[in-house]
């Protein structure tokens, strides 16, 4: 099932990329990034069948980084929303608030 897993992982990653490029809601873009991380995790797990459990160790690290990223990113989104009353990325185009 290695080839199928890698194909599924690539497909999910592509869907995540398309979501990042087509949506404007910052929270949904964030969720698309999570989907891409999940797709990469799937290929790590699939390849760990060949190379031993180190791939699964890496998946644990990826999950930790994803959790940290979600916490900080959502805090930033809340701060921006408090400032501009919007999470639409087209309204947020200035570095200087």
């Amino acid at each position: 099932m290695l080839a199928e897993s890698l194909a599924l992982s690539a497909l999910l990653f592509t869907i995540g990329v398309v979501g990042v490029l087509t949506r404007r809601n910052a929270i949904i873009i964030f969720m698309c990034v999570e989907l891409m991380l999940n797709a990469v995790n799937l290929s790590f797990v699939a390849l760990s069948q060949l190379y031993g459990a180190t791939g699964q160790v890496f998946v644990v690290f990826v999950m930790t980084v994803a959790a940290a990223e979600a916490a900080v990113g959502l805090a930033i989104i809340i701060a921006i929303f408090r400032h501009r009353q919007s999470v639409n990325l087209e309204d947020i185009n200035l570095l200087k608030g």
């Binding site: 404007r24 929270i27 994803a66």
Partner: peptide
Amino acid sequence: YAGAIMVVFLFVVMLLNLGHPSELSDIR
């Protein structure tokens, strides 16, 4: 993922109250 991270996402969506019809059409 399904338990913690997605709950944080849903929590933020509900905290920001993003259900307005004007906010909904966000496809580029």
